[in-house]
Computed example of a mutant assay.
Amino acid sequence: MRTFLFQIIILLGFSFSVKAQKSPARVLIFGLDGFSAEGFHKSKHPNIDKLFADGVLSLTTRPVMPSVTMPNWTSHLTGSGPEEHGVVGNDWTLEKHTLNPLVTDAEGYYPSIFKVLKENKPNVKIAYYYNWKELIYPINKKYLDEISFEEKDGYKENHNKAFDFIVKNAKNPTLVFLYDVHTDHAGHQFGWMTPQYITAIEEADAAIGETIARLKSSGLYSTTHFMLITDHGGINKGHGGVSMNEMQIPWAIIGPQIKKRGLINDFNSNKNTSLVLAKIFGVNELPKVWTGVLPKSIFK
């Protein structure tokens, strides 16, 4: 009888081990353009609050300068500042730019987290969903498995595609970048902190809540890391300056490797995001030109 029970215990242990091995690193990034710390304080976002309640939330993360869109999203995804990656404004193109990057790949692009993952994790699957067409210009598309641009500030179809991509690739390491610009455009059209801007944040929160609910139903929620990142805040109907309303933004993360620290005031920069992603995926060899710093205190 003891031998039989011992065999059962061994089999159960093996089963749990196999299940653990079937949970590859998975990250879903929610990117909300123009979402300021001030906007966070003045809007209602119950789904974001619930999602990151047991993780890490910074409301004092600094954008890179200038506090505009393309330099900051490029910094998120390349572990570097504009002085390194060369994207200093929203008019950057591969063919026409003022500042050359420190290094490039064969096609002329600065090394992104997508390149790093593809070269170090051959079975990784990467998706990029966006609704501002210029956003992807600094990124070499050859490192992306799925790309979707949604027109007219739409975001709901990209949420659907992101969910489908995660489910389809549940057995692979997976990184999904899900970006929404309609929050930023509300700020430009109506003004930061206007009712319309606040409504845009709350709409984005509702979309996040729906995607999270679907992931919970699919059984993939508990093994997924989630990030909330943004690029800059705003003042009046613009941004690009150095006011605190433009230069303080939310940054949040939760997942199997992340501590429950709640609200933190640790120094953090948009340049750090790619280093966090590399750590989650177990990649240690990073481009020497990356200047971000890994916030080790958020990891278990």
Results as ranks from 00 to 15, higher is better:
residue 76 H to F: 00
residue 281 F to G: 11
residue 92 W to I: 14
residue 132 W to K: 06
residue 162 A to H: 10
residue 92 W to S: 13
residue 58 S to F: 04
residue 233 G to L: 11
residue 269 S to R: 00
residue 59 L to H: 01
residue 74 T to Q: 07
residue 211 T to S: 10
residue 174 T to L: 03
residue 229 I to M: 06
residue 57 L to R: 01
residue 6 F to S: 12
residue 204 A to H: 02
residue 284 N to T: 14
residue 274 S to H: 08
residue 41 H to W: 03
residue 7 Q to S: 06
residue 35 F to W: 14
residue 186 A to F: 09
residue 230 T to V: 10
residue 250 P to Q: 00
residue 179 Y to A: 04
residue 71 P to F: 04
residue 283 V to D: 08
residue 8 I to H: 04
residue 76 H to M: 05
residue 231 D to R: 11
residue 225 H to D: 09
residue 294 L to N: 13
residue 145 D to S: 07
residue 279 K to G: 13
residue 68 V to H: 12
residue 98 T to S: 06
residue 119 E to P: 01
residue 165 F to T: 00
residue 260 K to C: 06
residue 233 G to V: 11
residue 212 I to A: 08
residue 46 P to L: 08
residue 131 N to F: 02
residue 227 M to E: 06
residue 51 L to D: 10
residue 284 N to Y: 05
residue 260 K to W: 14
residue 127 A to D: 09
residue 20 A to F: 06
residue 113 I to N: 10
residue 244 M to V: 15
residue 156 K to E: 12
residue 118 K to S: 12
residue 189 Q to A: 07
residue 19 K to P: 05
residue 257 Q to M: 12
residue 4 F to V: 15
residue 159 H to P: 06
residue 16 F to R: 03
residue 255 G to L: 15
residue 271 K to A: 07
residue 33 D to A: 09
residue 42 K to F: 13
residue 36 S to W: 05
residue 41 H to P: 04
residue 21 Q to G: 00
residue 242 V to N: 11
residue 58 S to N: 07
residue 48 I to Y: 01
residue 167 V to Q: 02
residue 106 A to G: 05
residue 94 L to I: 03
residue 9 I to Y: 05
residue 121 K to C: 07
residue 40 F to I: 08
residue 104 T to Y: 01
residue 148 S to Y: 09
residue 22 K to M: 11
residue 194 T to V: 02
residue 165 F to V: 03
residue 57 L to M: 03
residue 3 T to I: 08
residue 163 F to C: 11
residue 126 I to K: 00
residue 169 N to Y: 15
residue 137 Y to C: 04
residue 135 L to E: 12
residue 207 A to R: 10
residue 76 H to N: 09
residue 275 L to S: 00
residue 185 H to P: 07
residue 7 Q to G: 04
residue 4 F to Q: 07
residue 95 E to Y: 00
residue 246 E to P: 02
residue 27 V to D: 10
residue 274 S to M: 04
residue 113 I to A: 05
residue 192 W to G: 04
residue 254 I to R: 09
residue 83 E to L: 10
residue 63 P to F: 04
residue 220 L to V: 12
residue 161 K to Y: 13
residue 274 S to P: 05
residue 140 N to F: 10
